[in-house]
Amino acid sequence: MQDVKRKYVIPGDIVAEGNLRALVNVFRNGNSIVATRIGITESNNEGAKVIPLSGIYFPRANDIVIGKIQDHSSLSWSVDINSSFAAHLPAQDIFGRDFSPAHDDMGRQLSTGDVIVARIAIFDRTRDPILTIQDKDMGKIPTGELIKISPTRVPRLIGKRGAMIQTIEHASSTRITIGQNGIIVVSGKDKEGITLAINAIHIVEAEAHTSNLTQRIKQLLNVPESEIEGDDDSQTSNEANETLSSDEKSISNNINSEMGVVNPNGSK
């Protein structure tokens, strides 16, 4: 592994000095790279960046998000994705290219208040994000408890290769669908399991930066001792290590395991 230097910063603090690349949540001021957010710095040969600990969701292409249908025009649904931009889901995405507002009834497919899992197909800051549900196991979520956490805690909730979320799912016998925008759907058969999972998620959110978190969550969920492994000592650094690609993989794994998701194409 490369030599990575970390420290805690607030906006205005110097992350690194010298000829490094300024990656995310930093800017260059003369010879130094300065943090723009509260978080943990990470600087190595590739450049310097800050992993933020607070903030709202800023969309990125290919993120998997959970959103609520707000309204629809004759050509698209507008979806609240917990961001400063309202996302749009084009009607052609569901009805196909021969969609005609005169013949197809959009309200029959998705109505106001429906919750969907979708992928951000296009986004470039100059226009609102465009969603798609044309991927495996995306579309309307029929049941479940909706909870909101800070989007900056999503990588921690998923954990190293999905360790944290799998632990919670196993112990509470629930299915948890996570959107990168901090919206989570917990579904399961019994109320106790769902309550337990929600409590665990809130604890992860509140204590995301602390070490040994997976182990403490296992204790909370009464996972037998034999299943508690000692692989969790450097959890704080694991949080920082969560790369996006591994997050997305874990998310899609979770979504794949989401039994209740109805594919609107299949139901048509």
Binding site: I10, P11, G12, N25, F27, N29, V34, T36, R37, I38, P52, L53, S54, G55, I56, T152
Partner: peptide, 11 residues
Amino acid sequence: LADAGINMRDM
């Protein structure tokens, strides 16, 4: 503002 996670040049 810093707590809200808004990008800032400085406090």
